[in-house]
Design a protein around this nucleic acid. Structure first.
Lengths: 218, 218
DNA sequence: GTCTATAGACCGATAGAC
DNA sequence: GTCTATCGGTCTATAGAC
């Protein structure tokens, strides 16, 4: 685990600290100290702090989006042009669980870094992400929307916004639900991901107005 | 609008800049310049940057939580101990819309500041918020949970986490849905809040497992 | 209560020896 | 590729004149 190349150690330390303290909140001094490399190494290997941030994302997201695309391809192979909603949501959520599983402790700092990206706005980063992954995101968007065609576009966009919020927050593990001692980290994430998919599917497909989706449990 | 007291101008500027750039990302220099007060005024009036952050929250949340509590009281007056889910969610969400409506442009920077608080972790701030508003939050939690008693506690906690995510993200207006030109800011927030409540209610009440909540729209 | 000035620390980036 | 040293700039907080 320890003592890879300098670049890898920097990236690993960056992921950890960005997750904990954000981009602005993390200094290159803390970062290089944790990575056990010289301060100047960041600029030597990455050019600047912003480029380092970008590389932290690229390293994880390239693989993640490859998996998401492959999952969509497989779905359309199986179901034709418009697969049902649940597998589409699974194709988006499940690959995200695996990201960061190579980290030692089973935790997944990168998904928290992803959540930071929404809040800690960096124009350069936003442009990079949109450029590189926008096409796949739009493909998901359109497939989800096509499954909700009883709704008008405005309402669909709103509901997808809510979905992204639930997703982001849940993946970043900000909530109250803690892993019980008797289940493994992998099982924990799998259960959460399944619950999330069902929650979001129910929310997306809910009635247009008033009166609750189902009779209350009581 | 302009030229209130120094403290008020500082608080207003802080709200705006914290919403845009976060706590760490906002310097007292930017802040005092926008507020048109001297740099030293922050420390004179608030003691420190952290105390200023705390005051930004207290100023808005005291009123918000008073409204939320009053809405719950009124609900229980009307429905007895356990009101139905939708009005409970409305009692939580609707008062949040009004917060910040005294800002000049109809926008609501404070709700974005709230979202920051989840991501930009500050121990001092977390303790303050939990101390001051934890009781009301727990009351909401329990009423929601009581409406979902067909589910086991673990699943309820998970779903409430998803709810908080959707709520936080939506209130912060991070998503793609933009206000159409032909509706007022007030109407925009009301529509979003209603959609959010219905989305979350459907998600919370969704089936325990597999197979989608309702027949797909197509 | 408002200002200037500055202390004391930290920041990202870079030049240049090895 | 790695290091030291440092530049030029930022930051929060405060001391002290008015």
């Amino acid at each position: 685990m320890a003592a890879q190349g300098t670049k890898e150690r920097i990236l690993a330390a960056a992921e950890t600290l960005f997750a904990e303290s954000g981009f602005t909140g993390t200094s290159l001094r803390q970062l290089t100290q944790l990575a056990n490399v010289n301060l100047a190494a960041v600029n030597y290997h990455f050019g600047s702090k912003d480029k380092l941030i970008q590389e932290v994302f690229r390293r994880r997201l390239d693989g993640l989006y490859r998996e998401r695309e492959a999952a969509l391809d497989a779905l359309q192979e199986k179901h034709g042009e418009l697969p049902p909603l649940i597998p589409i949501l699974e194709a988006f959520v499940f690959p995200a669980m695996a990201v960061g599983e190579d980290s030692a402790d089973g935790g997944s700092p990168f998904v928290q870094v992803l959540a930071r990206a929404f809040v800690e706005y960096r124009d350069e980063l936003r442009a990079f992400l949109s450029d590189r992954y926008g096409d796949v995101n739009r493909r998901f968007f359109q497939l989800i929307a096509a499954n909700l065609e009883a709704l008008d576009t405005e309402e669909i966009v709103s509901r997808i916004d809510f979905m992204v919020g639930a997703l982001t927050y849940a993946m970043a593990d900000f909530g109250l639900y803690q892993r019980p001692d008797d289940i493994s980290p992998e099982a924990y994430w799998r259960i959460r991901a399944e619950r999330l998919v069902h929650f979001v599917a129910a929310g997306l497909q809910g009635p247009r107005d008033g009166s609750g989706a189902a009779p209350p449990a009581a």
